[in-house]
Design a protein around this nucleic acid. Structure first.
Lengths: 218, 218
DNA sequence: TGCCAATGTATCCATCGACAACATCGAACC
DNA sequence: GGTTCGATGTTGTCGATGGATACATTGGCA
């Protein structure tokens, strides 16, 4: 092996994702990652000032991925603002289930308490997307009577709560053995009713999306 | 000082609650607690096998307290199952805001991942209460069309999400400078509409409860 | 009174984060 | 081509922590 690793920073992040998926955020240690990658225990320090900086980088990537998923979902949902808003929430829940490591990184207290400008900005973008989605949906007729701020808070709470419920293994017993995809759809329906969306038949569908929607269309 | 502390176990738990409130669950260390209480660093071991056991005890007490709050809230909400179910959620959010240390203990990943029979039982009781509340509310006309399991999951997700939103300081910027009590009420209204509850005027009110509700009645 | 279980103490070890001094590599520059 | 220097990795160290074990003290009970 060469003296220099080549791309230690990326390797550390990738390995950390694995560790989080396997054993949780608590199990991430700089020394442990260094061992796993065959470098000295102080090598990670060249790339991350401390443990929290590494976790912050992971959380930032998590926000980026979840936001990407939400925007993709909204785009595929078509033009109706209510359908788009539902898709934001549904996509976030799907992200949490498919990328639990990043989801845990985002929501871990040790990360959330962190003051980090980049991370705070990523979080703000995430929140803004959901807020604008809620506001647009309200203008389109979703809970017109409600306080807009409450509607935004409700959207955030429902998205976070549902994502936590479906992504955390410790709640799998609660959700029962039933089909998680269908259950998640049903829960989202209680937040933003599909029946309120204007045009399910006129919705543009991509090839990747159509398969996912087959069940919920029944 | 006497050789024996007297009630070290309780003192450890009380001090841990303070530390969590001040600096979060991560800041709880057995040695730190021992220092704060003026005992040797190994003394806590007599009462808690390890750090997680102490956190588990805290979480257990947290479940007990939140459940107590929820049951009290439901009792004060009267007989209508829908009003009672709303009160369960509202009381949980209030518990999270008033006892953030216990709320954090309950939801901290390091605690949730723990396998502990007592803790699991407490959690199960908490969930069962919310499940039965949701089922009773549905029988009384709350979302009669919905899949019962989805309705339960929606209730859990909304309660957890709202509690997280209102209890975690890191979201205070999101909820804006507005009155948190009113906002929480408005959010809960989006989960279980007060207008759907049968008899707000016939509701029994205790002295302690009536003051709290004055604002939300406006 | 004397024994003993409960409780606290004194030490020791491994791991971890953090820091500092040193080593190696490669690329830019002359 | 050789030199210099910044980026990157290594080694050694320190203090804090969790965890384990052997020992000391206390108070209650037989």
């Amino acid at each position: 092996m060469s003296y220099h690793h080549g791309n230690l920073r990326e390797a550390l992040l990738r390995r950390a994702v694995q560790v989080i998926a396997d054993s949780g955020v608590e199990a991430v240690s700089l020394r442990g990652l260094a061992r796993d990658l065959g470098v000295s225990h102080a090598a990670p320090r060249r790339h991350f000032a401390d443990r929290r900086a590494l976790l912050a980088a992971l959380a930032q990537e998590g926000f980026r991925r979840s936001l990407q998923a939400m925007e993709d979902g909204a785009r595929e949902a078509g033009d109706d603002p209510i359908a788009r808003h539902r898709a934001l929430g549904r996509s976030y829940v799907r992200f949490a289930c498919e990328d639990p490591a990043y989801f845990r990184a985002i929501n871990h207290p040790e990360v959330s308490d962190l003051v980090d400008h980049e991370l705070a900005a990523a979080k703000r973008r995430w929140f803004t997307t959901l807020r604008e989605g809620a506001e647009a949906a309200q203008r389109a007729g979703w809970h017109p009577e409600a306080d807009p701020q409450a509607l935004v808070a409700f959207s955030v709470a429902a998205a976070m709560g549902a994502a936590t419920l479906f992504a955390d293994e410790r709640w799998h017993g609660v959700t029962g053995g039933s089909d998680a995809e269908k259950l998640a759809d049903d829960v989202l329906d209680l937040v933003v009713h599909r029946s309120r969306t204007s045009a399910p038949r006129a919705r543009k569908r991509t090839a990747s999306r159509s398969k996912r929607n087959e069940r919920s269309a029944s």
